[in-house]
Design a protein around this nucleic acid. Sequence first.
RNA 1: GUGGCCAUCGUUCAACGGUUAGGACUUCGGUUUGUGGUACCGAUAAUCAGGGUUCGAUUCCCUGUGGCCACCCCA
Length: 473
Amino acid sequence: MAQKQTNKAKKEAPKPVKKVAVQKAAPKKVSVDVPAVSEKELLLQSLRGMRDILPDEQPYWERVRRSLSNAAQEYGFQRIDVPTVEYLHLFVRSIKEGTDIIDKEIYSFETRGGDRVALRPEFSAGVARAYIQHGMSVLPKPIRLFSMGPVFRYDRPQEGRYRELWQGNFEIFGEDDPILDAQVLQLAYRVVQELGLKNIEFQVNSIGSTESRKRYEKALVRFLESQKQKLCQNCRERLSTNPMRTLDCKEDKCAQLTATAPQAIDFLDDESRAHFKSLLEYLDELEIPYSINTRLVRGLDYYTRTVFEIWSSDREGKKYALGGGGRYDGLIRELGGESTPAIGFGLGLDRIVLEMKRNQVRPYEAAKPRVFIAQLGDLAKKKSLRLFSDLEKHGILAAESFGRGSLKAQLRVANRLGSEVTVILGQKEALDGTAIVKDMVSGTQETVTREKLVDAVKKILKSNVALAHPKKS
RNA sequence: GUGGCCAUCGUUCAACGGUUAGGACUUCGGUUUGUGGUACCGAUAAUCAGGGUUCGAUUCCCUGUGGCCACCCCA
């Protein structure tokens, strides 16, 4: 949107079209059979639930990205980037059938080579795969890994809910001490706090070890089966597929029934109980606002012991999930690696940006050019390109409007950009080896030789800073 | 996946079934020579798509598409 186009380019540019069918390009040689193009595919429109993050919005994203990277660094996380596409089976094995993510939301397809693959719906599976594949278990423990990028879920879009969404992801492998659980929550809290988000609350729960979880599920099914008629249709199906998810069903009747159902917390093995207790003590120590939600289950199947979610609420008390995570001590082993405890969490960046706007948080501000280069005439135009790079080498950011011809138009741009200094290079100056340095605040200007140019510019910039921040004395 | 509301220039807001589809903001150009602001002038630019009803559809109906809201779920 902010891109300038030369007149020539503009003329050649296609007429902007929006949601409009365009002429099919002349058929070119293609190497594959492309099915007939549908009307829909001719629309110049991003796919449903997929969006462009335009330059206007980037400062918010930049702030989030920086915050995450900094936090990762400070907490000793190393960056890892894993592929967007993996074998479908990797996700099925880790997240498991019976979860919404696998059953309804995964983007899967077959490649040309016949591989069944899927766009990642989250990071942990891929990171865990990388951990095993590259023998990371030989690295000194714990191993802390950070990722950031898009993940995909085929869901019905709404505000803050997209089919392509961005996540920041943190994982710690190789340590089962609950202090790491606490540290991970601390990190999550630190990030959202630093981003200026208010009214943050964590919900935590423990669903126990794989074994105690199984025991609990059995008891829960036994209880619910006996009163199956009181459950909604959905939950009746869940009984066989994913019984624990009945716990966070929002249907009234289900909620009423499950309120009296056995609680996971009562089925915890001794170790898990101790683990959870320690975690809570650490959280108290850290003064992280949390509440225990015994019904919190999470939509992925690989969790053990600690699970948590991060919620933000607005003035009306409406709540938004910003992230979540938990411990998955069994995952690496289940995928075929050696038994490795792990904990991790993901943050939804789209929602964080949304919350930042809601909270009127200041976006990231990039350094702005304070100098403008104006040129007049062919020779000067040639030289101005060099001038730009000379200034840049001296650490002076310059803006320009090389495509514009008249000096008036260029100064107008300089003014609009709030430039403090404009360097004017005309035909005469280009021949003389001089340039005009114009102070845009006072309007005064002087002609200086090329050698003195940088100093002259710096002098004005410096005096402006002094004006803006007068020394106390 | 279910239900509801909505859809006009890049943005925002107009237009009793008959308008050259209008304004504001933005963008671009200009108000005579190599100097910014304001003001003024001008230009570019839209009825989401496909059907139907009608002499005539931006307007009414249907379908599709997309956005939003509530479920569902989560991030």
